[in-house]
Simulated scan of single mutants.
Amino acid sequence: MDADVDWWTHPMDARTLWIRQLHQRGDAGTLAGVGEHVVVHERRTRLVCLDRHEGAVRWDTGIRTRPYDVVTAPAPGPGAGSVLVQENDRLSCLRLTDGDGVWSVGLPRYCRSPVIAGDTVVTGGWRGYTPLTAFRLVDGRPLWRTPEPARTAKPLVWGGGVLVGSGTDVRLIDPGSGQELSRWRLPEALTETDHRPAFTAIGQDRCLARCGRRSLVTLRLCSGHVEPFLSHDADLAASAAEFAGGVVWVREARVASDGACGRLAVAPENGRVVGRVDVREPLVGDVVPVPGLVPGAGFAVVGDSGVLCLLEREGRIVHRIRSRPPGRALALRGLGGDLLAVVGRGTLRAVALTS
């Protein structure tokens, strides 16, 4: 750890709180945080929980192989909270406070994308390799399983159920029973996002689905209707929109001559494009809300060279903060408050933004 690394320069102070050497390529899919805990996969077969502010190790436990997914959830009441580790053919639940194993179940190979819906875990359906399967979060007891392998985009917990879909068919299922609660028929097929999300919740009654080459549509829960949201004049990336800080952020697929891919800032109420982000290099990771730190700036993004940019709501760059020395970035994640996690080629950095 190094609490005194001067990683960012002016015009705004962004202080590196700690750096963790991962001894492998970083992966945002195996980084998860909840409350004061940051859980990260490192050293091939280790899962480590770090203190959010200090980077101190809370626990360090072994796993069998490189996990596909790491998911955390706070306890619904007084309790320890949970960490789910999805390996190739096994799903394990650890206690968040100390990393002790709670339960572990075997699964068919190539199972991934677990989601926690209340007291239930639903996993499976990636590329149509495995059935959808549900377990009780508290003890891993099986609840239900589809009779055949199912194909679905990465499921999303929304509307009192779990949203799954493939092609033009989208369903909301009850996590406890697997029964269908609602169904929508899309005008175009869901985009093939592989292990990335295709759905974005933007309200209790509204969820966006990324479909076709250039479109997003709105799923209405109460009415069961599908409504147009955005039809762009160029191809969009094969990934879901983000909903952060009251703005919908949509990735474009086109690559400029300098290698940059832009993101659109879109008004959630009407799908109108209000701006476009272009930092002259590919953006990596999330758009992270950082309200109140700098006048006019409400969001942070990072380019793959490690340049951190602060944006206004319309996507205009307010500040650029360059790393010194330059460090490649693979992803940006929010850790809550003014803290950011930057995943690098072999490191995890926690950065605090201060005005």
Rank of each mutant, 00 (worst) to 15 (best):
T9Y: 08
T65D: 15
P291C: 05
V121W: 07
L219K: 14
A234H: 15
R206T: 03
V266H: 07
L230R: 04
D304S: 12
A28Y: 12
R151D: 02
D304R: 15
G262A: 14
A300Q: 11
P76Y: 06
T168F: 00
L293R: 15
L332F: 06
W249V: 00
R185H: 13
H319S: 04
G315Y: 06
A189T: 10
I321V: 15
P325N: 02
E36I: 01
V351M: 05
K154G: 02
L348A: 05
V266L: 09
D338N: 15
G160R: 01
E148V: 06
R15P: 01
V301P: 05
L332N: 07
G176W: 01
G29E: 10
D6Q: 13
G246H: 10
G125F: 05
R66F: 09
C49H: 11
R206N: 04
T16P: 00
D69Y: 09
H23A: 12
G124D: 00
E314Y: 02
R183P: 05
R43C: 03
A56K: 12
V288K: 14
R136Y: 00
G212I: 01
H195D: 14
R109Y: 14
L91Y: 09
G79I: 04
G161F: 03
P295T: 01
G346V: 02
G128E: 01
V342Q: 14
